[in-house]
């Protein structure tokens, strides 16, 4: 086991940020912590990277206890905090050189590992890090976190504030890193990124709601969800919420996701109901279940 978390809890004054969280991450696994802002992801990351001490429970990284063996963990893992945390007044190359020497290595020594990523920012290597775009900053931060060839990589919301194309590229990079036998723990508030992980933990209000592979989570979801669309989306949500047997209603892209309480739900009846409410262009079809749907139901 690369990461082992057992009943970790952490409170700030009256707020329980992490509540008895347990999970395990296998060696070489890409594990995602999925949850909205304030779910406790960053606190959990800080506990695992030895920056905070949990109130209860224990955790180990590669067999090292996060409290007792913090020094061993600090030199073995790579950590990319949620906030961009590089030296803005240093150039791209200077940042990378600094982090390499910090870990007692050189860029040349581990260049293979970062090559794919670094090659994209190399044209800007003499530019100050503060002047890079969001996506570039994240790539540089990833390079800096990887430069000492860590066994375990902690990435706290690496794609927040990054454009969709860079996000996609970033995940492709993670997939490639994974092939180098690096264990990756990544957190994200974006549900669409969940399906790119090997396994995910859905977390909210400090509690882990579900841990499984994204496929299993979707497969095991027992309810049927319908995409509903009419001309007037706003009143559609309102009207659907007033439908007697509704279970859940929420906007989802261009559609409204509708779930019924009954197993023998008849979409004709719903269509008739909507027609009575003066809706036109009514479309109802069974939806592809996404992680977000599962999350909404938890």
């Amino acid at each position: 086991m690369s990461i082992k978390v057992q009943n970790i809890s952490k409170s700030y004054k009256n707020l329980k940020a992490v509540d008895s969280v347990s999970f395990e991450v296998k060696k070489g696994e890409l594990f995602g912590l999925i949850g909205p802002d304030g779910a406790g992801k960053t606190t959990l990351f800080r506990i695992l990277t030895t920056l905070l001490i949990a109130d209860e429970g224990s955790a180990a990284i590669m067999g090292f206890d996060v409290v007792r063996d913090y020094k061993s963990i600090r030199s073995a893992v790579g950590y990319m905090p949620g906030k961009f945390s590089l030296y803005q007044d240093l150039t791209v190359e200077e940042n990378l050189t600094f982090f390499a020497t910090l870990f007692g290595t050189t860029i040349a020594e581990n260049y293979e590992l970062i090559k794919d990523i670094y090659i994209q920012i190399e044209p800007f290597k003499n530019r100050r890090a503060g002047a890079l775009s969001g996506g570039m900053k994240q790539k540089l931060a990833l390079c800096c976190a990887l430069i000492h060839a860590p066994k375990v990589l902690f990435l706290d919301e690496p794609t927040t504030g990054v454009d969709p194309i860079s996000r996609k590229e970033f995940w492709e990079m993670l997939k490639r890193l994974q092939q180098q036998d690096i264990t990756i723990l990544v957190s994200t508030p974006y549900m669409d990124e969940a399906s790119l992980c090997d396994r995910i933990a859905l977390i909210q209000h400090g509690v882990v709601l579900k841990i499984d592979s994204p496929e299993n989570i979707i497969k095991n979801y027992d309810k049927t969800i319908y995409d509903v669309a009419t001309k007037n989306t706003h009143s559609l949500i309102h009207d659907l919420k007033n439908y007697p047997s509704q279970y859940s209603v929420y906007a989802f892209g261009e559609f409204v996701h509708y779930t019924d309480q009954e197993n023998n739900f008849d979409r004709k009846e719903l269509e008739k109901y909507l027609k009575d409410k003066n809706h036109t262009d009514i479309k109802i079809k069974q939806a592809q279940i996404a992680i977000e749907d599962v999350f909404m139901d938890l």
Partner: peptide, 13 residues
């Protein structure tokens, strides 16, 4: 303030 202390802490220095 800039968060770089976090990275310095999680390093062998």
């Amino acid at each position: 303030e800039l968060g770089t202390m976090e990275i310095l802490l999680v390093s062998p220095i």
